[in-house]
Structure formats: structure tokens, C-alpha cells
Design a protein around this nucleic acid. Sequence first.
DNA 1: CGACTTAAACATC
DNA 2: GATGTTTAAGTCG
Length: 368
Amino acid sequence: MESNGIQDNAAFRNRSSTWHGKVKLEPGLQPVTEEDRSKRHGLLGRRNIYGQQSYSDLIIKAINSTPDKKMTLSQIYEWMMVNVPVLSNKPEGMASWKNSVRHNLSLHCKFVKVPNPSAGKSSFWTVNLDVKPIKPARRRTGSLETNKFNSKQQRAKRAAHNTKISPAVYSNAQLMETAEPYVLPGYQVSPVFRTRTWSDESTYSQPSPIPSEEVLVNIPNQRLDIPMQYHYQPLYSSSGQISPDYPETMRRYWTKPSAMSQRIHSSPYVRDERNLDLLSNNFQCNVTLENAQIDDRNAEENPNFYHDNDTGYQYAMNIIHAGVRPETLDLVADVDNIQVDLLKSPLECNVDEVINQELRMGETIDFV
DNA sequence: CGACTTAAACATC
DNA sequence: GATGTTTAAGTCG
Ligand SMILES: [Mg+2]
């Protein structure tokens, strides 16, 4: 608080500081050595072009080194000890760097906890780079309103937001501004529906929700640890006819999945035969225990076969239409009214692949 | 002033 | 005691 108070005297400082050693604590006793100087920049050393990565960087590397992109705290510790030379020869126990790791996990909103379904285990940590901290409003160069922006209160508010993102905190517009475009594996972006003129001249559009063949989607649920499987009927557009009101049609559809069968024939799609085996392209789905039920059709041969009254299917549709990753979709307030054309950058369409598939199917290409 | 590290109080399991 | 959250204090560019 008081910058001239006793707290400012390093000799009496009883609490946090990045100051190491007694050099400053004993005034005049000894000068600051080079070793002290380097120590002050932490275990990881000074960050520069050559080098050192921040704790945040390392945690991201650790988590991404696993197939599931998730790690418990203790697993992160282990990864650090193996992969970070400065830490590997540190003695066991509650080291300061572990404190720093925990601090970073909590502090940064890109690190999100997900419950660990195993009994007595600590949470999994995941990375979602779509979750971005709020930056202070940029001050206008010529503006006199200097202190209006970036007041103490506003800084505190940002900090509160940035450390912890609770579900559904993003407005649709906010999310689409920052999220990375994402296309659900097994689906192809249709080149036909140009929903927005992007600055470059490439062809972009919305993804179609209709897989070309009957497929099973295996959704490992990270909250329940129950593999969810969804059975998709093949749905074909009647002609190659393109409905001019596609976006509106699909919007209504994904809000009310039960009405899909009536609307599906007016919906365009593009076959994507490259990723028909969606079993290898898992995505995560929020299914609660309440709406997960044993599928009695398969109960005998596989008692662990669950279905969830199509909420998972709807969820998949939401992901497809939003064009963002599932864990990011979790953060948006109004899922039903996402406008994919507000994405900061367009979803990419593999035009060559689309043409090849159409040709293979013996269909004419009437676009482009 | 923001990005970063380290320390530590505190809560929760 | 391990796991998280938060505040505070420092350095550096
Ligand atoms: Mg966090």
C-alpha cells in the first residue's frame, strides 16, 4: 500500500517478491552479483529471442503432448520434470515452480479445468486458445480522455474476467470475433453458399451438416467417461438443387432437430468421403447424466451403449453450424442464434476435393 | 503499463 | 497434503 512504508523496506519484507537471496536484505553487506541478477529472473531464466519459454508456454506443450489434450496437475508436474532441464534436477517436494504452475493454470483463462470422472482424482486441465483475455481499451492517440480508460476498477474487472471464464459468458458476437474457425471432422464445407464477401477472393461458405453416408460418431464424453455413439441415417438432397434460403432453413433446423426430416430435402450438402470413419475423429460433447440413457436396442450385446435422446446430435449440429470448436461453443451464451458469417475468418472449403467427389458421384457441377 | 515470475494466504477436497 | 484461487510484490521491455 504505502510505497514509503515499512513494506517498502526489503529488510522487513515478509512476503512475496521475486527477489532472491539476502543480497538486498542486508543493506550494504554485499553487492548484487551477476548470479543474483540472473536468479532474479526465475528458474526458467530470462526470456529472449533465443529462448526460454514461459510457464504458460510449457503447460500448453505439456497438455498438447497427450492424445486427449488434457492432463492432471501431477501429470503436468511429471512432464515438466522430464522436459524442462532446469527443473529436472530439482529435488522432489513442493517446489516453487510447482506453485508457479498452479498459479498459471488458475490465472490464465485459456487453461480450463474439466472434471475428472475417475473417483478421487483431480481435474483435467485443457487448453482453449479461443478463450482470450480482455485487453484494455486502446487509448486514442490524440484523446484527452486519458484516465477514463484503464481505471483501477476496470483493470480489476478485466482481471476477474480473465482469470476465470465461467460458462456462457461470451456474447455471440464476442465469440465469433476471436474464435478459430473449426469444421467438424467428417463434414465438408459447401462452396455454394457464400454468406459473406471476404477480403480475399477464395471461396468460402458454411458447413453442411449432412454426412454423405451412414456413419457412427463416437463421442467420448469427458465428463461422464462414457463413449457416446450416434447413429446417423444417410440423408440425401433430392437433386443437387440448392435452396436459396439455406441459412435460415438450417437455423430453424438446428434449433428444432425433430423437424429435420421435413426440411432436409431443401438443404444442400457436399459429400466428404475422406473422413467417413468418424470413429477416429472424436470430438467432445457435453452430455449430462440426466439425459444419458442405456440404449435398449443394443443393451444385450453392449451394455455400455448409451444414447442421450439426441442432445448429442443436436450438439454436433450446433458445432457444425457455429463453425467453432466444441469447447468454445460451451462458452457462448446464445447457442441457437450463432451467425457463422460473423467468424473472424472464413471456414475453408476444399474445392478440389468437392469437385472430385461430385465427379465421382456422376453429378454435374453447376456451381463455380 | 503489460507480461511475466515468485511468494504466500486462503479455501476446498 | 494436494489442488486451486487470489492477492501481492517484484523485474523487464
Ligand atoms: Mg484458468
